[in-house]
Design a protein around this nucleic acid. Sequence first.
DNA 1: CGCGGCCTTGAGCAATCTCAAATCAGGTGG
DNA 2: CCACCTGATTTGAGATTGCTCAAGGCCGCG
Lengths: 237, 237
Amino acid sequence: MLQSRIEVRPSRQLSPVAGHQSFAAENAAVAMGSRVTIPAGQTLFADGEAAKYCYKILSGGVRIVKLISDGRRQICEFALPGDTIGLEAGLTHDCSAEAVADTQVLRYSHAEVEAKLTHDPATAVKVCRILARNVEAARRRSAYICRMTAEEKIASFLLDLADRDEDDEDNDHVCLPMSRSDIGDYLGLATETVSRVLTRLRARKVIALIDTRDIKLLDRDALEDMRGGLAASSEIH
Amino acid sequence: MLQSRIEVRPSRQLSPVAGHQSFAAENAAVAMGSRVTIPAGQTLFADGEAAKYCYKILSGGVRIVKLISDGRRQICEFALPGDTIGLEAGLTHDCSAEAVADTQVLRYSHAEVEAKLTHDPATAVKVCRILARNVEAARRRSAYICRMTAEEKIASFLLDLADRDEDDEDNDHVCLPMSRSDIGDYLGLATETVSRVLTRLRARKVIALIDTRDIKLLDRDALEDMRGGLAASSEIH
DNA sequence: CGCGGCCTTGAGCAATCTCAAATCAGGTGG
DNA sequence: CCACCTGATTTGAGATTGCTCAAGGCCGCG
């Protein structure tokens, strides 16, 4: 069903770069938790592909993508350092995952995780929590994506990223590993709209663009006001 | 579509249970898997409330809701017969759940499910699958909600419902337990737009409105075309 | 029969998209 | 080191979708 509509190809054909393709499937006999570096643009796994691995992000960033037939795409999630992706897969992945920048990950064998799941309650609980958090994250995102104006979306997005950024204590500094069009496809906005809103916020001195992909939050309160009352979630469990 | 559902414990046919107020919290000492009837509009659980129960829907329907401060709301999910809700909660629920029509559910104690989770691998696997499906569903919804026109959204929505409807084999008949404004808040559309699109589809003889809440799909192919290539997911695992 | 909730329909408007072009940034080869 | 190329970003102008506001219709219910 899914396969018949969406063009699902093995990841090696999706990847435009020769010589670097197919990180997900190249080496089936890898020990659990091996560290892998994935260059920007590379596919970790593709929609419809057999689920061989899941990944914990160490650095960089990964976009979780769903494609619609005519070229439109929706980015369902940005996985940042500390996040684990691919666990939700059954036999096959239901989304593609692509590095938005050079990305380091820990790679786990999906089969082994599944096996462990059935024998080790502690693992099972951990997996459940990750999945529960994914559900929560996806829902919260729905809430702020569907019913908000472009400005509210961007404000929420920036605040979310600022709060998620692990190794940044002051929280007024956001690093965007992804492109404007990635942000657009995440928030349901045209690339141009993303750009325009950022420009507008800069003009109002709410943010400063240190660099295209590096933003400083000058007026957090203004952003919070824009967000429109959907507070960030507290932790689960 | 949803195959293996949680059967945490065989459902016993129990007493008709209690009055009509405060269904979520009225009786902490209820045995697992008790059957409860919830009148339309009632709240099963509220955002932020301690997670006491999860529910398996038997009939009717439930909307999973997130509220934004100024009165806007986002419906994250419609739970229909066969679906299980509330499992993703940690200590507290992250969304509200409200019956969109008179609804029968099986109610499970959240604490007992959690306890069982840590001791019984089979339960753990089941819960993981439900959660994984939730993740998949939320993502698929994102994809069709953010980047689609009003018509595409409605088409997808109708097809999804038709496919989900358990006790309807021919699949060309959709029953909408929810109001137009519920649909709007689910799809990110104004109530009026939902209505207008349905009217337009009827004018084109793609659907027939047997009754406000009862739709017949006359031209499934046309709807599939509108959907724009995001096919329904097949089952997981 | 009148009331209150939904639902439908209409008209104008605003936010956002699309198309188009200019600018900028990074990498490459001379 | 510089010119050049490619892709990303920004900016502008007009088109368009879907929203808001407003009114009217339908239906169940007291």
